Simulated scan of single mutants.
Amino acid sequence: MLGKLVIPFFFLFSAASSLASMTISGTRIIFPGNEKEVTIRTNNKGSKPALVQVWVDDGDINADLNETDVPFITTPPVFRVEPGKGQSVRLIYNGSELPQDRESIFWFNLLEVPPLYKDTANVDRLELAFRTRIKIFYRPKTLTSSSAGQMEKIQWQVLPGNKGVSVINNTPYYLSFDRAALQNGGGSGELDTAMVAPFGSASFLLKKGAMAGVTGATIRLINDYGAAIEKKLILSADNKLLLQNN
């Protein structure tokens, strides 16, 4: 009789990953501070049943679930979804104190565990468990806009040597970017972007060294619905990048 070889692999995929059967409706979760819970819809796009586990972490992907202290509960925490069917997950806020002058961020995790079939129970096999993570933005009820609605408050400046740009986030919202690039008369240079925390700052460096003759920039900020809002920036005399009015 052949032995059973089970090798678990954990991959991070976007919600639109074609390799995993389970998907999440949306690429981010906005949790309004005046709500006690929100509903997250999951769907099985595959041809076989899926066993799913869901939970929330604070950003540490390797955190022990029994020791993670987060203000959200997911229910049901484990469920089975038939092919072509869906399952709603309740994300419940437990009332723990969070900052009320800015957004807080957490992560929603969905782990899809492959089913065990009787006809393959005694044969060598490779099991792949797919893990999907999307951001949860807790938005206090005192905040009535969004990052996309306050783009004029973001400060941009070209770094010395034209090696990239500095970003100062003067808003209470997290800034997530789909893309950013510096431009000159002959083309553009793509920047390495990162999420910028509320009232924080970051440097976006060019992926390929420096760039001569910078005239402006293009940024693509991700809004609450996961869509990218593109804006043009123009270079001012003091090396700042100013939002161009459309």
Rank of each mutant, 00 (worst) to 15 (best):
L242C: 13
T193K: 03
L235Q: 08
A212H: 01
S203E: 04
Q183L: 06
V158N: 00
A197N: 06
T42R: 05
L111D: 09
A129C: 15
A228M: 08
I29G: 03
K48I: 10
S96E: 14
S88K: 12
Q155K: 15
F9D: 04
I29T: 08
L143C: 00
A129S: 11
L126F: 10
Y174I: 06
S25Q: 11
N184V: 01
G185Q: 07
V56P: 01
R131V: 02
D57P: 02
V56A: 01
F108W: 02
S236Y: 10
V6Q: 12
G216Q: 07
P71F: 08
T144V: 14
F11I: 13
R179E: 05
K153D: 07
L233Q: 03
F204Y: 10
F10Y: 15
L19R: 09
P8T: 12
F130E: 08
A210D: 05
G3V: 02
A212I: 05
D238S: 13
A227W: 10
L128T: 13
L221C: 02
N66M: 09
P83R: 11
R220L: 13
S18C: 07
Q183A: 07
W55E: 05
E35Y: 07
Q150A: 01
A180V: 02
R28Q: 10
E67Y: 10
N122M: 08
T215K: 02
R131N: 04
G200Q: 06
K232P: 04
K4I: 15
K118T: 14
G59D: 04
K135S: 09
D57V: 08
E82S: 11
G161E: 09
D57K: 06
Y93G: 03
T193I: 12
G185H: 06
T75P: 00
I234A: 14
N169M: 12
Q157N: 05
S176N: 11
I30K: 05
N62W: 14
L243E: 04
Q244L: 15
M1T: 15
G226M: 02
D224I: 08
I134A: 10
S47T: 12
N223Q: 04
E112M: 03
F13C: 03
N94Y: 10
P198L: 05
M1F: 11
W156Q: 01
K207D: 01
P160H: 04
